[in-house]
Amino acid sequence: MRHLIDITDFSVQEIEAILDLGDKMIADPAAYGDCLKGKILATLFFEPSTRTRLSFESAMLSLGGSVLGFSSADSSSAAKGESLTDTIRTVGCYADIIAMRHPKEGAPMAGSFKSTVPIINAGDGGHNHPTQTLTDLMTIRREKGRLNNMVVGLCGDLKFGRTVHSLIGAMSRYEGIEFVLISPPELKVPAYITQGLKDRGIPFTEVETMEEAMPRLDVLYMTRVQRERFFNEADYIRLKDTYILDPDKLRTAKESLSIMHPLPRVNEISVKVDDDPRAVYFKQVRNGRFVRMALIKTLLEA
C-alpha cells in the first residue's frame, strides 16, 4: 500500500507515470468514467479548504467513485477529543482511500502509520501540499513539454508557502533547474531548503524584486501572502501588497513565460494579466482535477 505524504515519496519515474495517466484522462475522460465504481474516497478536512476538497471530490466522482467526509474539525469526532490515529483507523473501515488536510504539520504522516488504506496529504499546515505539486508539475510539463532545463521563479510568501516548498523539492530532482526566489526578507525560504539546494549543487538566487528576475524566467510561480500564517496583523498588512504582478512588470518577460499560481489569489496578480496567454493559473486548476484522478487511481491499484 502506498501513501502520498511528501512529493518525494514518489520517484521521478512514478511521477511521470501519474502525469502520463493524467494526460490520457484529459484526452479521453469518458474512458475512465467508471473505472473506480464502488470505491469510496473520504475527504477528512480538519481545516477548511473548499477548493482542494472539491477538486478531490470532483476527481473521485469523475472516475465513477463515491465520496464522504467532513470539512472542518468541528464536525468530526476530533472535536470530542478523539486522537488522529483513531479517526484514521475508523474512517479506514468506511472508505478505500483518504484525502486529508490538517492544520498541524506532519498530521498525514502520523495518520499513515496506523492507516489500513492509502492516505493522500491534502495539505498539512505550512509544511507540504504534494497534490498541488503534482498539479504544478503537470502544468509545467504540459506548457513546456519538459520538466528539466529551465529557470523557475517563485514569488511571494516563500517562508510559509507549502506549495513552494513542495515544488522546490520536486523540481530539484530534474536536470538543469535553476531557482530564483523572490520575496521580502521576512518571507524568505526556510534555511533548511536553501541548505539542501546548496548541498546538492542546485543553483539558486534570492532577490527582493520581481523586476530584477523577470527577463530570465521560464516559469513564474506566484503565491499569496496568507493572513492565517501571520502571528501579527500589522506584519500582514505591511507585506501583502508588496509583490503584485501586473502587465507593466511583465514587459521584460519572455514570450514563453508561464505564469502560475496555486490559487486562491487575493490581489497578487492583477486581473489585467488574466487574458495574457502566458497566464496559465486557470489551466492549472483544471489540471489539478485530472492529476488527482490519476493519483487516486494509481494509489488504489498499487
Binding site: S83, L84, T85, E105, G106, A107, M109, A110, D124, Y192
Partner: peptide, 27 residues
C-alpha cells in the same frame, strides 16, 4: 502534530551526518 497528539512516538531521522542534524519525521 506531535504537539497536540501526545501518544505519537517522537521520531527523528539523521539527515546530515557531518553537521549532526536530525529532523522530525513529521514536520
Amino acid at each position: 502534530i506531535t504537539s497536540v497528539e501526545p501518544e505519537l512516538d517522537q521520531i527523528f531521522r539523521l539527515t546530515d551526518e557531518i553537521r549532526q542534524i536530525y529532523r522530525c519525521v513529521y514536520c
